[in-house]
């Protein structure tokens, strides 16, 4: 076994340890440190899960698209997996965003979904785009062609994200109730709340990086196993 094979498990283990520690710290801060919100009460604590999960989803989509563009330019097949895995994790985090957002909406506004809200609608569009990415990917045989098609569609998403944000914002004029986390004056919250939010965000991003490293390793093992099977089948 050479050095590079030993280095990968170490990176994943380090990321997993960091994620576990940060997550424990975030949970402790959310439930025992941060003060209860005056207007929304105890249930407002879902904010520290919902917003970091949503931001992590955007981070994963961007990561997937950037690696897709890098694949188109270099044709390095390892970048295909590095584009696919963040997109896949983006669906998981995206689903969690929709679920936690819906729960929060029901607690805060008394409705599970509000079409007048620009952020919910934008997120739904991007989530549908990501689901379509998988439909395309699994309609094409594994190989370079699938990698190219997936990368092209992922790069198109880079155009869709700003258009959705602008388009939905332009079209909906009654966005009055979604809490504004950040505005031109910086974070729109109290110091301890902002600190808790930052720790929760760091925990969620570290968790996504850990999941990325583990899934990437699993997919690479899958690919090698398939290659060995093909080889064994061919020789038999």
């Amino acid at each position: 076994m050479n050095g590079s094979h030993r280095a990968r498990p170490d990176r994943a283990t380090a990321a997993a340890t960091a994620a576990a520690l940060l997550m424990a710290l975030a949970l402790a801060m959310i439930f025992f440190y941060v003060p209860t919100d005056v207007s929304e009460g105890y249930s407002q604590r879902i904010f520290y899960f919902h917003v970091p999960i949503a931001l992590t989803t955007y981070f994963l989509f961007t990561w997937g698209a950037v690696n897709g563009a890098r694949f188109l330019l270099s044709r390095d097949m390892s970048l295909d997996l590095k584009s696919y895995v963040p997109m896949h994790l983006g669906v998981i985090f995206g689903s969690l965003t929709l679920v936690t957002g819906s729960i929060w909406a029901n607690i805060a506004w008394g409705t599970w979904w509000f079409w007048g809200d620009t952020q919910l609608t934008t997120f739904l569009i991007i989530f549908l785009f990501n689901c379509a990415y998988f439909m395309l990917r699994f309609s094409v045989e594994a190989g370079e062609r699938r990698a190219i098609f997936s990368a092209v569609y992922a790069v198109l998403g880079v155009g869709l994200i700003p258009l959705s944000v602008i388009g939905v914002h332009v079209a909906q004029t009654n966005d009055l109730i979604h809490p504004i986390t950040f505005n031109e004056n910086g974070a729109n919250m109290d110091g301890s709340m902002f600190l808790t939010f930052l720790v929760a965000l760091a925990a969620m991003i570290t968790l996504s990086v850990t999941m990325y490293l583990i899934e990437l390793r699993g997919k690479r093992i899958d690919d090698r196993l398939r290659a060995i099977r093909r080889l064994a089948g061919g020789e038999a």
Binding site: I126, M135, S139, Y153, S164, G167
Partner: peptide, 23 residues
């Protein structure tokens, strides 16, 4: 050149139509 292209194309296209239609 993808199988089930008639089904796939609307699925790929619709997310892109949403911001367009809303505006």
């Amino acid at each position: 050149n993808v199988r089930a292209r008639e089904v796939l194309l609307p699925v790929l296209f619709l997310p892109f139509a949403l911001p367009l239609v809303s505006v």
